[in-house]
């Protein structure tokens, strides 16, 4: 184990996204504020409370999770594809860092960006709407686990991808629909029965409702089940990404 090397690479990943805060932290906050104002304020009064929670509060966990997922996923995928395309990945591949260490460092960096975005969205949401958090510790666990899951997913995407376009496509055609259909803006109880059943196959539905339970004390599914689904996805993506990276798939000749 090359502990110094691992921590250095994590530090590099964190420093990278912090120095690019205009692309990595600010946009999520801005869209959150817009969503709360437009959806929460103007539409919320017509939709009314869901499970006794004001609509403006109801959407905050979903918005937080949306930011965790997109930011964690974008961090590892774009960081790796940049290193691949600009060919400075070699600087890391020649060092005494193993594939597992490099993978975990990328994932951890992405997790931290996702986590930070999630926390910021929740704080802004609390400041605007006056919402309070029901189970803070549970919320932190969900933010970390889901951040890790999509950090690992992003790494997988970064390994497969040959261009930036590959990444953009995956985000637009895969992640964004799953996030929206995972119940960011609604409870699946409001859907027709067929769509309700289909939603149960969307892992993001569990993650969003897990955080909803942590923040608001309500949710469409039990929190423990949500956590287990998230952990299973995290394990699946981590093992797959680290294995491919170690074998040098799309990484080494």
């Amino acid at each position: 184990m090359n502990r110094v090397g691992f921590l250095t690479l994590v530090g590099r990943e964190v420093k990278r996204f912090l120095s690019l805060y205009n692309q990595t932290l600010v946009p999520g906050l801005l869209t959150t504020v817009l969503y709360i104002i437009v959806f929460g304020n103007s539409l919320g009064s017509r939709i009314g409370p869901i499970k006794d929670v004001p609509y403006m509060h109801y959407i905050i966990p979903g918005l937080a999770m949306m930011n965790v997922i997109t930011n964690a996923g974008a961090n590892s995928s774009s960081s790796l594809i940049q290193a691949k395309m600009l060919k400075f990945l070699d600087d890391i591949l020649i060092t005494p860092l193993g594939g597992l260490e490099v993978s975990l460092a990328y994932i951890l960096g992405a997790t931290l960006r996702g986590f930070l975005n999630g926390v910021l969205v929740i704080l802004v949401g609390m400041a605007i709407t006056g919402m309070s958090v029901a189970h803070p510790l549970e919320a932190l666990v969900f933010l970390v686990v889901v951040g890790w899951t999509f950090g690992a997913f992003g790494l997988l995407v970064g390994i497969y991808a040959r261009t930036f376009d590959n990444i953009q496509m995956l985000m637009n055609f895969f992640i964004t629909p799953l996030v929206f259909l995972g119940g960011v803006f609604y409870s699946i109880d409001m859907l027709p029965p067929v769509w309700r059943q289909i939603s149960l196959f969307n892992p993001l539905y569990y993650m969003i409702n897990g955080l909803r339970h942590a923040l608001l004390g309500i949710g469409d599914t039990p929190a423990l089940g949500s956590l287990l689904v998230s952990l299973a996805m995290a394990a699946l993506f981590t093992v797959t990404a680290a294995t491919l990276f170690t074998r040098g798939y799309h990484i080494k000749e």
Partner: peptide, 16 residues
């Protein structure tokens, strides 16, 4: 993304 100084430090770190 980084200055020469940072890159020098990172490279040392990667080597442990």
């Amino acid at each position: 993304f980084f200055s020469l100084e940072d890159l020098m430090r990172f490279q040392a770190g990667y080597y442990g």
